[in-house]
Design a protein around this nucleic acid. Structure first.
Lengths: 235, 235
DNA sequence: GTCAATCATTCTGTATGCAGAAGTCCAAAA
DNA sequence: TTTTGGACTTCTGCATACAGAATGATTGAC
């Protein structure tokens, strides 16, 4: 039985949604764990109504699976599914980069260059956490530069779901240096207004994260990695 | 004041969500129209609780906009946003086609060919509605053949949001014949296992729908079309 | 006559209660 | 010992009630 949360401010549906999202994404709630409304309501000091609403929203976002009359459980991301998500993410971000290259104005370009510089600084000092945040800002800047509202929303939603996993693979050896070099190529293509080059560079940049992730799984869990590898060979 | 819905079976959250989705997508609820919980609860003979839940889900799906303390309104799709949505859809379906070309097995290929034949039949008889449905089945078959569960889900969700608008543009002159020819190219590329060709063909096929839509808007509403045209020129 | 402030109405957000369904556990029989 | 049946517990899903906020109208002042 969990203790009632004493820290944290007033809990309403919106904040509750964010808190739960954080707990799921950080892995505080393990995949497959049951999320009981009563327990959560007790823990956060609210009634079941806002808990239900928050869970429903997380369900729509795909973080939890809600089966009618059978409760909510944290969505179990299979390695294969995660790789598929990275693949879609790569394509969405490639679209953003393509549009950014074709349409980025002075302000947008400046924002991209600035975040890129911050990434470089973090890379020089070897600060993984700092690089993680600046990397997020860099991608965000490119997405914003695309000026495609709907695309930005879609990419942002998927980004939030992958955030926790992106962080992990940054810790791989030499990954930060490689990432920064890829950022360089992306920025160059955008500055050259070469949409296709920017898209290709971005696609590769994100896709390699999925590949890295598969490698990591291979080191941790041969079975899961084997199942994931099937994804490229099946039928 | 609306009459209470007498038709239709038992209304639970799930069915209510589908009913409301249908009403929004078909335009029965005009964009910008307020969706009052009490009125909907009365109309469908349920309490406000399931109505709230259904609206929240539609909000996550993007069909309605929920502003805290200010109620829910049907999302107003600007022409520009709709075109952006078609653009993303084109990319997602292109991904599906690429994977389908590389991985489609005998069963999947047979399903694609069969739905393609049904499209051809509908085109010969000039039955727009029939072509609409068979066209949906054709795209669905290709998505399924990609064997990418997450991608299929994402594409499916977007497809539902665009469904009503896809139907309209089929009525344009000669559009069905052109559509069928494009289907031919897509099928040929998939059968040849040429992923890039399949992706390119599919991307063009879907993208032209967005373009057609812009044309239609130009005929109906010069202002809106002008705003939409800006989307390709802006900074 | 116009603008602003206040009040009333309405609607949202949350709490609680109840009925029905699903899961679980135990016991009895094969 | 294993399997199946049933009862019990628990949890979900919906209905209803209440408090707070937002919107609109009305009235008063300038």
């Amino acid at each position: 039985m969990h203790m009632k949360e004493v820290s944290g401010a007033r809990c309403t549906t919106r904040t509750l949604r964010d808190r739960l999202e954080e707990l799921v994404l950080t892995g505080a709630f393990a995949p497959g764990a049951r999320l009981e409304e009563t327990a959560l309501a007790e823990r956060f000091g609210v009634s079941r109504t806002p808990v239900r609403e928050a869970l429903a929203q997380l369900g729509e976002a795909g973080l939890v699976v809600i089966r009618p009359r059978r409760g909510a459980v944290v969505a179990a991301l299979t390695p294969r599914r995660l790789i598929e998500m990275f693949e879609v993410m790569a394509e969405l971000e490639a679209m953003c980069a393509r549009h950014a290259a074709r349409r980025a104005g002075g302000r947008s370009l400046a924002a991209i260059r600035r975040t890129h510089e911050l990434c470089a600084s973090a890379a020089r000092t070897g600060d993984v956490d700092a690089y993680y945040y600046e990397n997020e800002a860099f991608h965000e800047a490119i997405r914003a530069a695309s000026r495609q509202d709907f695309l930005v929303e879609q990419a942002g939603a998927l980004q939030r779901r992958l955030r926790a996993h992106r962080r992990h693979q940054l810790r791989a050896r030499d990954r930060i240096a490689a990432s920064l070099a890829e950022h360089d190529a992306i920025v160059a293509a955008i500055e050259a207004a070469d949409g296709e080059a920017a898209a290709a560079a971005m696609r590769g940049h994100v896709a390699v994260q999925g590949a890295r992730f598969a490698d990591m799984l291979a080191a941790l869990d041969p079975d899961a990695a084997a199942e994931a590898a099937v994804s490229d060979a099946a039928v």
